[in-house]
């Protein structure tokens, strides 16, 4: 049933019948408006009106509501489904509203039952054997998983000695101005690993950047600061997913192999044009500062700044710049992903 045109619609019609407005409208005009809208969204983000964590929270909220996603990755559930599917029903439905059709179907079924039975038995045996083999393989992978977890639990005992070293907050504090200045203008997400209490991340967020941090000793586990090891986290960051990367702490403490890998991973996770900023201690200065026994037992020692320069250049970085702080015995190395 119809009704008089409401006020809102009447207004719209009056507007649409304005010939001047019609002449001024064009596709290009809307492209410019879209650009203004994008600029507005950027400006609001940069001013902090629109916290970077807000969109991530919305995404996370919805992800939690997707029903099958988790089950799709659950090995047991997938295997159960495969096992159920491996049961092949030999008796196809023969019912039909048309009696003659139903009789024909029954006749055909009876006629070929011996043949179907022979084929189906083989198919079912094959399917059951395959799922059984996959289950056995799954059990073996699980056993390897358990052994690896047990081994990993033992390995930190070596690392624990390194952990006796006091956490070096001084280096990050002394270079935080420089790091924020170098990173706040980059395009894309910025990761600080290890982020300590998240002080630099907060400064970057305040500057309008889309930043987050990871630290194995993070007091809280939030979207801005996650309780996770640097290498562990970098291992799951997508290729080219970051615009900026600030590395500290791990750059001194990690064993040599891990530090070499760290430079390689930095080259992988940064998008072309992305910037890495690496903070470290001069090894001689570090050795003087740290008690000899702890220095000897530490799994890793700091690199010279020039070592990082070499590693970063080998990992595809350009324009490596080293800044040293003679008073503090620390340095900042920055480079751009080529």
């Amino acid at each position: 049933m119809g009704s008089p045109i409401p006020e809102k619609v009447r207004k719209r019609r009056a507007i649409s019948e304005n010939p001047t407005a019609s002449q001024s409208s064009s596709e290009g005009d809307f492209d410019a408006v879209v650009e203004e809208i994008q600029a507005e969204a950027r400006r609001r983000r940069e001013s902090g009106e629109y916290p970077a964590a807000f969109e991530r929270e919305l995404d996370a909220l919805f992800e939690d509501l997707v029903p099958e996603r988790l089950r799709e990755h659950d090995f047991e559930a997938v295997l159960d489904r495969a096992e159920r599917a491996s049961l092949i029903d030999l008796h196809a439905p023969v019912d039909d509203e048309r009696r003659a059709y139903a009789q024909v179907k029954r006749g055909v079924q009876k006629l070929i039952l011996w043949y179907m039975d022979y084929v189906v038995r083989q198919l079912a045996t094959f399917a059951a054997s395959t799922t059984r083999a996959v289950r056995l393989l799954g059990n073996r992978v699980e056993a390897i998983d358990e052994r690896q977890t047990a081994l990993a639990r033992r390995l930190p005992e070596v690392g624990d000695v390194g952990d006796l070293l006091p956490r070096d907050h001084h280096t990050v504090e002394s270079w935080s101005d420089g790091a924020v200045a170098l990173l706040s203008g980059v395009s894309g997400r910025i990761l600080h690993a290890e982020a300590g209490d998240g002080g630099v991340v907060k400064r970057l967020l305040d500057a309008g950047a889309d930043a987050y941090g990871v630290d194995p000793e993070a007091a809280e586990d939030s979207l801005e600061l996650r309780a996770q090891g640097a290498l562990e986290h970098l291992g799951v960051v997508g290729e080219g997913a970051l615009g900026g990367l600030l590395l500290s702490g791990i750059t001194d403490r990690a064993p040599t192999e891990a530090k070499i890998r760290l430079a390689q991973v930095a080259g992988e996770v940064l998008a072309p044009g992305g910037r890495v900023v690496l903070l470290g201690n001069d090894p001689e200065h570090w050795a003087e500062r740290v008690p000899a026994a702890l220095a000897d037992l530490a799994p890793g020692r700091p690199f010279h700044a020039d070592t990082w320069r070499l590693l970063l250049e080998r990992s595809g970085f350009d324009g490596v710049d080293v800044r040293t702080g003679p008073e503090t015995g620390t340095y900042l190395v920055t480079a751009t992903r080529g």
Binding site: R12, I15, S16, N18, A21, S22, S24, S25, E27, D29, F30, V33, V34, E36, I37, Q38, E40, A41, R44, R45, Y50, F54, E55, L58
Partner: peptide, 26 residues
């Protein structure tokens, strides 16, 4: 279609009478 951009677009259309007019005509 990140929420910030879409929200800015919706707000713009809702508050810009001239733009609404041109969109309706188009």
């Amino acid at each position: 279609k990140d929420p910030a951009t879409v929200a800015a677009a919706l707000h713009r259309v809702a508050t810009d009478a001239s733009l609404r007019e041109r969109l309706v005509v188009a």
